[in-house]
């Protein structure tokens, strides 16, 4: 198995390769404006580092967001196209799940957390999770056997409108650093520490590991539609060309 994971739903442009046992390589760049420039070179880099070619891919998994639309689409169209060319199976995962999954080993089984990312316009994308034992794991087993369960659907909201019990949960993502008055319990001691531990923006390594665990348990979906959560602003761009070409 050779699984390529891609996520462009946050400020990180991130790609990773997983062989079903471990992450072989990850390449991430944090730049909220360079998704179109950095993603393809990042994918080439992880392939080169793993000594693999695109033809070797068996699976492609992409973070479906929610996230700022323009960047989000870069990851999804890239994943769809690579899967189309190579014949690899295409899968999708809610990007917030990957951030929750990255935090699983820091929390006790049964603990809850909130993932909150930057939705711009003074809002956050969020979902509530519980850390649970993965399928087949014995109670008290090793951390790798843990996984996360979404307790809510992903949503977009102004931080002040988060339910009080959610705002009080341990928080990962950029949300608690952007809105510290609302989300007062960040998991990490500082934003830099969160970044270093892959708990600020999505890490494709965590996404890949989550996807492999879901593949094993048969819960990975082939769904690959973006999670926009917002309708488009219906403001025509009058200086754009019309349908006249």
């Amino acid at each position: 198995m050779l699984l390529l994971a891609i996520d462009t739903s946050t400020s990180a442009i991130t790609a990773a390769l997983h062989d079903g046992i471990q992450v072989l390589a990850e390449a991430s760049t944090v730049d909220s404006r360079a998704h179109g420039e950095r993603l393809a070179p990042g994918i080439r880099e992880v392939l080169t580092r793993a000594g693999a070619s695109p033809r070797d891919l068996t699976d492609v998994v992409v973070g479906l967001g929610p996230g700022p639309f323009t960047g989000l689409r870069v990851g999804i169209v890239t994943a769809r196209t690579i899967a189309h060319v190579t014949g690899a199976a295409l899968h999708g995962v809610c990007s917030l799940d990957a951030l929750a999954y990255a935090a699983r080993d820091r929390l006790a089984v049964g603990a809850e957390l909130v993932v909150a990312t930057d939705a711009r316009r003074k809002e956050v994308y969020w979902a509530r999770y519980a850390v649970v034992l993965g399928p087949g794991a014995a109670p008290g087993g090793v951390g790798d056997a843990r996984t996360v369960h979404a307790r809510t659907e992903p949503a977009v909201v102004r931080p002040a409108d988060l339910p009080a019990e959610v705002a009080a949960l341990t928080a990962v993502g950029r949300g608690p650093w952007l809105y510290p008055q609302t989300m007062t319990h960040p998991l990490c001691a500082s934003q830099d520490a969160a970044a270093a531990d892959g708990l600020l923006d999505v890490s494709a390594a965590a996404l890949a590991a989550l996807a492999v665990s879901r593949l094993t348990s048969g819960t990975l979906t082939a769904r690959h539609e973006p999670l926009y959560l917002r309708r488009p602003d219906a403001v025509p761009h009058l200086s754009a060309k019309s349908a006249l070409g």
Partner: peptide, 12 residues
Amino acid sequence: VAAAKALALALD
């Protein structure tokens, strides 16, 4: 642009 790069990358 992203789709074209993915094509170029996957097809070399």
